[in-house]
């Protein structure tokens, strides 16, 4: 390099670099814990709603797996399911009124869901803004480190904010750029510190949610429509058992 190296005070490392990293790691951990505390607990559903879902699921699994039953069993179940699906015995609410989609916003249950989303977003933005303000306020106006790789001059405005030397090499950066490097680079540190517990929880939650149709929710299909459709698909179900001609198949394969 043509220009001689800038000599940086070694105390800068211990009083600026490490504190910023330390604070960011701690704030990240606190944030994840607070998010966990704020996350909604699963609520009890009224038994009629659960029964409605379970019954629909039962009908669906019958259509999918009817092959393991013999012809008489299929016929009996077909009769029973069609009868029940066409009656209103298993509906969660009797005589559903037509809701227009806008009134979904007035529903307290949906309001709660939106509130939770807002909380999650707030937990993302507030800590970052606070730390950025803190870094800008406490460590502004001096060069703290030299990056190990060259950066184009376009980054000068961002990386050297508050440093009033227009010709300084862009590799010398101020504290706010260390904040940004940390912001993007701490993900592996978090995932190692928090362990696999949270990830496992996420996966188990996803598994629970699978296969549960969103009946009666905002924008979701109405139960009676789903029941009618299921009744029709059961109606046209063919009588095909896996036991038909099983002896010939087994013998011919070997």
């Amino acid at each position: 390099m043509a220009t001689p190296d800038l000599i940086l005070d070694p105390a800068l490392k211990y009083w600026v670099l490490l504190p910023i990293s330390f604070v960011m790691v701690l704030v990240g951990l606190i944030r994840s814990n607070v998010t966990y505390l704020l996350s909604p607990k699963p609520k009890l559903e009224p038994y009629r709603a659960v029964r409605e879902k379970q019954f629909l699921k039962r009908a669906q699994s019958f259509t999918q797996n009817s092959g393991v039953l013999n012809a008489r069993e299929i016929r009996d179940r077909q009769q029973f399911l069609i009868e029940k699906l066409n009656s209103s015995d298993f509906y969660a609410k009797e005589g559903e009124e037509e809701l227009d989609p806008l009134s979904a916003f007035a529903d307290p249950a949906n309001n709660e869901a939106m509130m939770n989303m807002a909380k999650g977003n707030m937990m993302n933005y507030i800590p970052q803004t606070v730390i950025m303000g803190w870094v800008n306020y406490f460590f502004a106006g001096f060069v703290i480190m030299k990056l190990p790789f060259p950066v184009t001059d376009g980054f000068k405005g961002m990386l050297q904010t508050g440093v009033a030397t227009p010709d300084l090499n862009v590799r010398y950066v101020s504290s706010i750029s260390w904040y940004f490097v940390n912001l993007f680079g701490l993900r592996p540190v978090y995932s190692l510190l928090m362990g696999d517990k949270e990830a496992n929880e996420l996966i188990s939650q996803q598994n629970q949610q699978q296969g549960m149709p969103n009946i009666g929710g905002p924008g979701g299909p109405k139960a009676d429509k789903l029941f009618k459709a299921e009744a029709e698909s059961i109606q046209i179900l063919g009588h095909e058992s896996i036991f038909d001609g099983i002896v010939e198949r087994v013998l011919s394969e070997n």
Binding site: K13, L17, S21, I144, M145, K146, L147, P148, W178, V181, N182, F184, G185, L186, R187, P188, V189
Partner: peptide
Amino acid sequence: PGFVMMWCLVYA
């Protein structure tokens, strides 16, 4: 990003 962060820190 994680690599760059540790690189910058230890380099400094």
